[in-house]
Amino acid sequence: MRTHLLGLAAFVALGLAYPVLFPSALTIAITILLFVGWATAWDVLGGWAGQVSLGHAAFVGLGAYFVAIGVTEYGLAPWWSALLGMAVAAALAFAWGWLTFGLRGPYFTLSTIAFAEILRLVAINEGWLTGGATGVFIMTLPEPFGLDLFDRQTQYWLALGFAVLVIGIVVALSRGRFGYALRAVREDEDAAMAAGIDPKRTKLKAFMLSGALTALGGGLYGIVLSFLEPHVMFYLLLSVQIALTAIIGGRGTIWGPAAGAMVLIGSGEVFRTTFAEANLLIYGVLILVIVLFAPRGLVGEATRRAIRRRYAKRAQS
């Protein structure tokens, strides 16, 4: 616990120093921070509870569209509509999980794809609600405390806050009763049940938390892009990207998804110049490498090695 709090403090320090050191490269940092938050939120369900979702773009889209439509149609301030989006995301996650958590293994994963895809089709075709395939522009935003929400600097602080919030929640979870329940369910549902844990309830809570946090990041993403298209917001490849970021970094570890986001989005931006729009190639190659040679992910394998070395030393002395 103490090491994780120290890690969180280091992360915040790094986040505070970044805009001073690289004031011109804020956009990429915002993208990285959003993915840190999304991948960590995904991991609550995918890593800690062991339910692989390939539909988290649905929550991103939900959060973004709530903020955008709230501001353009109803004049609702983005923080209220983001809260509303989170609540709806949690409700949707509840309904979805309630229907599908009876399914084990790959069937749940398949159902999440279909779920996000249906939401995307609704967003494209219900133009009266979402602006259809052409999308929604966010033209004006309120200025809380004189802060300009269109300013990259402000958005950076918000993204940092989002990432720190999500990681903080996971740090708190890791030592709490709920965190242990999640891991018990992941390892063996029947044994967890025997220990008095309700697997379905536990997975539902994880799904709702994961979905609500992802939607919060989605609302922020909507403000950052200030232009929303169904093809971007509910995109299957965004779901895939979120899931793979967490898995490559290390499922079920606190810092794995964050590390994955920094490595993958960072290198993705570098490769963008050479590979243009084929920047997901690196995800494909890396996930193969991870599955074949390091199934615990980058951080998972690193901690395992460190722990082994420590025990080896202790055994020698």
Partner: peptide
Amino acid sequence: LLATLGLSLIIGNLLLL
């Protein structure tokens, strides 16, 4: 499942290139 997902990304992006 993850390995074939990676394969899918590789094939698609190589075709794109």
